[in-house]
Amino acid sequence: MKTGSRLEKVLEKGAFAVTSECGPPRGADPDVIREKGKLLEGVVDAVNITDCQTSVVRMSSLSACLILKEMGFDPILQMVTRDRNRIAIQSDVLGAAALGINNILCLSGDHQRFGDHPQAKNVYDIDSIQLIMTVKKMRDEKKFLNDQEMTKAPVLFIGAAENPFADPLEIRALRLAKKAAAGVEFIQTQCIFNLDRFAEWMREVVDMGLHEKVAILAGVTPLKSVGMGKYMKSQVPGMDVPDAVIERLKGVPKEKQGAEGIKICIETIQRLREMKGVRGVHIMAIEWEEKVSEIAKGADLLPRPKV
């Protein structure tokens, strides 16, 4: 065991981990975070705080992490390389560790073209894999990127995302191997709707032995409606929603589509749990946090282990 991370402890214990996420508000109100937090109490091992997702300005991930930490959660600080250079990144990593944050998720971030400030200059001093390398170097070598020693190393459990559905498909497992080589310890995947494709990716990952180096948490998202399914299929880059899933939602009356979406999500988790190498799930209930506990319960993931 390297860090104070609850997620790391759960994984070390061999339990099937559960994480979820919480998007900070577009304002300075801390109660929004607290209310979202309450919905997740006792349901997850750790909770991600997004970092200006889709390039829309929101309360900083680190601040929201601290609010959740005060409530007793083990937050996962998401950090994108879009908005920070290596000076700001290393500074924020030190700050997060000093505040008792135990987990970091290293991302490149959505391009600002999608966000609410498309006029912004992007940074991309380093990329997501290089961010993994940076945090690992700081933690394990106690050194900054310039090789100078620091007084106290930031002890963080290092995570990253991977999208098994993005093109080109044939390099997706190889890219995970690069992240593993860079030092990543857990992975949360893009939302899985296409289980066949995911199983194929997972097989490659297992063949390469990556599942032993990296804990893979499979990402799931409950669909609220046919409309949401269609939107994710056509408008969200790198998202693979098979027609069969949309057809299944279409098969029930509109007011029952949400319930059917949750049912699909639970069945997905059950199938993922049986796949070799899958060590947990990451439930992303987009602006539907109140359903996470229902999903976790339905998938027989409660109560969470004490560590």
Binding site: H111, D127, A166, P237, G238
Partner: peptide, 28 residues
């Protein structure tokens, strides 16, 4: 579009960049 040295990111789709369907994915 993100000047990644270890790309492609998760936004690469059918050889195109997530920024625009007219833009090729550099990493592809």
């Amino acid at each position: 579009s993100k000047s990644l040295f270890n790309g492609p990111c998760g936004g690469s789709s059918k050889g195109k960049c997530e920024v625009s369907p007219e833009m090729e994915c550099g990493w592809q």
